[in-house]
């Protein structure tokens, strides 16, 4: 029983401390620039391009797509940096030297970012409604929040996997940036999935966010959660698969780094 309590404590302490450590440099202006103004500019950029273009999609298509995609700011960058930060700050050997449960430690890194990511999406929708006239009158708010929560979870799963990669590569920013922009291209946030070539549609199908964005559009269009439940179950499944991949990678890197003595190799 005490072991369970210790693991729960480790889970939550790890979650909070890794978030605090990540944002040690945080000042309100940084947070506002990154999580409030940046997403607004991204939504505006793609919505205005969509208005100028002739692809036939409505402004709402881009507003919803980008508002949901913003969860990748926390899910990809935040979660990855939470893991990579241990390497940069030299705390990785201590981390791997402890007898702490690795799964608890690993999952804890994503928790606060899931909450923060959901908050980011809500900010995105606030911009959409107040500045761009997004109509939520047919929307079941609880269903939308549930979709946001599930999508943020699955995106954080990808973030955990990429975070594990950051323990063996110096180019974590390259990986993160590429993942973020590939999600912009392939998740349906800016290009309707059926317009993509079939090979890219297949990739899109195994990415987090794809089903979340489609479900959010359906919910805002008046669908109920029951309508999008199968897609959401798949989204959860995708998130779990990424987490499992990430965890296996995390353990493998630990073993490999200990064997080779390259725990802090840069």
């Amino acid at each position: 029983m005490s072991k369970v309590i210790a693991n729960i404590r480790l889970f939550f302490q790890g979650a909070v401390l890794s978030y605090i450590a990540l944002f040690a440099w945080l000042r309100p202006s940084t947070y506002i620039a990154t999580k409030v103004v940046g997403p607004l500019a991204q939504i505006l950029f793609f919505t205005l391009m969509g208005k100028f273009g002739t692809s036939g999609e409505s402004a709402d298509f881009y507003i919803i797509g980008n508002a949901i995609q913003i969860t990748a700011l926390s899910g990809i960058y935040g979660v990855t940096f939470s893991l990579a930060g241990d390497r940069w700050n030299g705390t990785l050997p201590y981390l791997f030297g402890t007898p702490a449960n690795r799964m608890t430690m690993f999952l804890g890194r994503a928790v606060i970012h899931i909450i923060d990511g959901m908050f980011g999406v809500l900010i995105g929708f606030t911009w959409g409604v107040t500045l761009l006239g997004l109509d939520l009158s047919n929307t079941d708010p609880w269903a939308l929040i549930l979709v946001i929560a599930v999508t943020t979870f699955s995106t954080s799963g990808l973030g955990l996997m990429l975070g594990s990669l950051s323990l063996i590569t110096r180019n974590v920013m390259f990986i993160n940036n590429t993942a973020y922009f590939l999600l912009l291209v392939l998740s349906g946030s800016n290009i309707a999935i059926d317009r993509l070539p079939s090979a890219l549609q297949a990739i899109s199908n195994v990415l987090p966010l794809t089903r979340g964005i489609a479900s959010a559009r359906a919910i805002i269009d008046g669908a109920t959660f029951r309508d999008v439940r199968p897609a959401m179950l798949e989204e959860i499944g995708i998130g779990i698969i990424y987490i499992m991949f990430g965890y296996v990678l995390f353990r493998w890197i630990e073993v490999l780094a200990k064997r080779r003595g390259t725990l802090e190799a840069m």
Binding site: M49, F52, G53, T54, S55, N171, M173, N177, F181, I191
Partner: peptide, 26 residues
């Protein structure tokens, strides 16, 4: 520097792809 190479090569390319789809055939 991979970060610089991303900014120069990868990101503009991905933005160009999105723009090609969004702006449509004009």
């Amino acid at each position: 520097d991979a970060f610089i190479l991303f900014g120069i090569f990868v990101q503009p390319l991905l933005i160009a792809i999105m723009a090609l789809f969004i702006l449509g055939d004009q």
